[in-house]
């Protein structure tokens, strides 16, 4: 049980990827279903609905980014893999904001994108306004990413 630090660190990286990625998959999937419905009636709207579909994809990318950072800090991608259990737990804690905020924000952004797709299918000229609404959900994923990154960058400097 000497290597608990790396176990916790890896668990953090896995959570960030898994939960944020799951949220994005659900969100992109839902928006994709609605986009297909619109395209079945009007294929000319492909470009517009694709943007709506891609909006919830970013949380998965944020999770991946945080996971990469954690993997490099705990030495899985090279360097010294000997970190303390406390630091490992700190990396695990650092992954939680993007893991959970990513999961829930991507699902709700997907729902919001579906509604936006409905709006532009009837009023294509309202694309600008319709895209702003699901984009607002992104704010909370960005805030979570910011906290996760700040934590991951500053953990190595802590005297523990």
């Amino acid at each position: 049980m000497d290597n608990l630090g790396i176990v916790f660190g890896l668990l953090g990286a896995a959570l960030a990827t898994f939960l944020a990625g799951t949220g994005s998959a659900i969100g992109v999937g839902k928006a994709g279903v609605a986009a297909s419905g619109v395209l079945a009636e009007d294929p000319s709207k492909f470009g517009k609905v694709l943007i709506f579909q891609l909006l919830p994809a970013t949380q998965g990318i944020y999770g991946l980014l945080v996971a990469f950072l954690i993997l490099s800090k705990i030495g899985v991608l090279g360097g010294d893999p000997n970190i303390s259990a406390t630091k490992g737990l700190l990396y695990l804690a650092a992954s939680l904001p993007i893991a959970f905020a990513g999961l829930f924000s991507a699902i709700h952004q997907g729902n919001c994108s579906v509604a936006g797709i409905g709006t532009i299918s009837k009023k294509p000229d309202q694309f600008g306004k319709a895209i702003l609404l699901p984009a607002m959900v992104e704010t909370y994923a960005i805030l979570a990413l910011l906290i996760s990154m700040l934590a991951v960058f500053n953990i190595p400097g802590l005297n523990l």
């Binding site: 609605a34 419905g37 619109v38 009636e41 579906v114 797709i117 409905g118 009837k122």
Partner: peptide, 15 residues
């Protein structure tokens, strides 16, 4: 049951 696809098509049909 999820009607997301059907509702999206109906939105276009409403036009």
């Amino acid at each position: 049951k999820d009607y997301t696809y059907a509702v999206a098509r109906i939105r276009s049909r409403e036009l």
